[in-house]
Amino acid sequence: MELKLKLTDYRTDVHNNWCPGCGDFGILSAIQQALFEMQLEPSKVAIISGIGCSAKTPHYVNAYGIHTLHGRAIPYATGIKLANPELEVIVAVGDGDGLGIGAGHFVHAGRRNVDFTVVMYNNEVYGLTKGQAAPTLGKGVKTKSLPKPNINLSVNPILLAFASGYTFIARGYSYEVKHLKDLIKQGIMHKGSAFIEVIQPCPTYNDIHTKEYWAGKGNIDPKTGKEVPRYYKLEETGYECIITNDTTEEEYLAKISKFIQKALESGNRVPIGVFYRDLRYETYEERLASRMPSYKYYPPAKQKIADIAGNPITKADKILEEFAV
């Protein structure tokens, strides 16, 4: 296939002010590569972010870039996508952004199954405000700018996404760029709300779960005596969890209990890859179209509302008749 668009077509010349060695670079690169490999026109793509380091992502991608409010990327993205479903919508949120201040929106997006992809940068800290504990930081962990160890339990993003109703759930690692790029492509291609958690070491404020930690520092395999990475790829273990309308209740329970086991794995063996796919539910766009047949062809952003002279073309007089006496 001849590629019309080059990888550089997805880059901007905006100075990137992430810290040197930031895990965000890997995610940015994976997003750009995914768009490039899918040859998506920049003007058909919208990247919506919240607030924080992750939220600067849109400025570095040559596509429509909407950098919004802390925690609110999802509702902005929902409006953008539902008004014009032709757009390819990617939501870039942080852990505090998505699961702290924006947790409500995160949950409710699952109920809708809008066809977009949520990428959550998880470094367990609020980086841009200098390293406070994020909702994904484990209890008792003391990253370097915390005066005391974290007093709260952490939320499990994969399980929360499942409980909320996301129909594609995955986890990537920002230093496994190719693997992450593939996850993002799958997320984009999935019809419905896709959630991808990305483990993203913060080199400045997370001195516990560093790049070296994930690479296996101190995690010695007793057999080989070598350091083993603290993550592994689900697909290499033969794991798969796809729910369809043909899945029996028995199969469903078996699959879900396996999924939950995988979602709970932590410590020295953290799985990355696709955790869950649910093909049973129609997208929100399809639900709207079933109620409003014209939505499919003329979504809100594509409807004509006036003639050339500016006269309204909606027939409101008929509606007015309901009130006639």
């Binding site: 902005y76 929902t78 409006g79 953008i80 008004a83 409500g104 929106h105 409710h108 809100p300 594509k302």
Partner: peptide, 21 residues
């Protein structure tokens, strides 16, 4: 929507796409 914050931000998103919202 789930709350009024989502209500105004979602409408704003739709307006960005070109719908009167």
């Amino acid at each position: 929507t789930e709350d009024e914050i989502a209500a105004i931000t979602m409408a704003t998103g739709a307006a960005l796409s070109g719908a009167r919202a």
